[in-house]
Design a protein around this nucleic acid. Structure first.
Lengths: 147, 147
DNA sequence: GAGTATAACTTGCAAAATGCAAGTGATTTT
DNA sequence: AAAATCACTTGCATTTTGCAAGTTATACTC
């Protein structure tokens, strides 16, 4: 029994799993930025170090938020794919985006303000659904072997 | 210029502020557990150390998520109160609760499963509104002096 | 009003998480 | 066969978190 959880509060328990610098960033990259392979993650804007990435991917797999897979004809490259449990973090990520859009621009003026923000502002549930659907469809159109 | 933000992604920027073990836990305690004073926080289930608490409260104030106040007849006790910017984190906290309720019970079976969960499951927006209203009303019924 | 208790901290040090740079071994490409 | 790529690991520096003990100002008690 390793004491992973601080107490019986659902919110604190979620943060015991997700409350750090990287876990939700990695999930976001999978969901919204087409990151699939170890290399993909290392090339992101956030510039995660490979040792941290390795540790966090392992953790995310243990928790059940992602699974590893391979393409049928490639023994080298790993694919990291969101599970249902991982995909279900979408609403949290969307709320983070919305809060940033509304309240964080004065602290970080460089925050992107593109096309996609319009739907987020008008209908965040639709925005979340669109993200989830797009991800599911990507998986549906892919041939891979779970490892 | 201190490099607080990793990049121009809204989600990553939110996590640059909130992505640690304590920031959202403290906000939650204010919003849902009537924590008002330094002492209140030290007595919570999560058992935060006083040095960490002190540092995080300072940070939360700098970011503008809370303000300090005092009761008119008491020069000793500080009150820590959520600002609008802080209160607007409610939807994020609610989504964390909902995710925990749905997906984290097998990893932490001790997660509370009380009365309040029913509304959360049925209508999370109503749940969030109820939390925000209750907090606003508490403030409205209080006499304090902002410091 | 003197002594005790309380609130809100700070300080010093230990432990854990994060970060950087370099290296390794198994594929895959040329 | 050699070179490049991918998915890591290792060693070490830095930062964050955690524990226990102290400090100061205010408030309460007799």
């Amino acid at each position: 029994m390793d004491r992973k959880f601080r107490c019986d509060c659902p919110i604190t328990s979620a943060l015991d799993m997700l409350g750090d610098k990287w876990m939700l960033v990695i999930i976001k990259q999978m969901l919204m930025e087409d990151k699939l392979t170890f290399k993909d993650f290392t090339e992101s804007d956030e510039a995660i170090a490979t040792n941290i990435l390795s540790a966090k991917l392992k953790l995310l797999e243990e928790i059940g938020l992602l699974t590893k897979a391979k393409l049928p004809n490639n023994k080298k490259t790993n694919l990291y794919l969101l599970t249902e449990k991982g995909l279900s973090l979408t609403p949290i990520i969307v709320e983070l985006a919305k809060w940033s859009d509304s309240y964080l621009r004065d602290l970080n003026p460089s925050i992107r303000n593109g096309e996609g923000m319009v739907l987020l502002r008008n209908d965040k549930a639709a925005f979340a659904d669109a993200l989830e659907s797009a991800y599911r469809e990507k998986l549906a159109g892919m041939v891979f072997v779970k490892s």
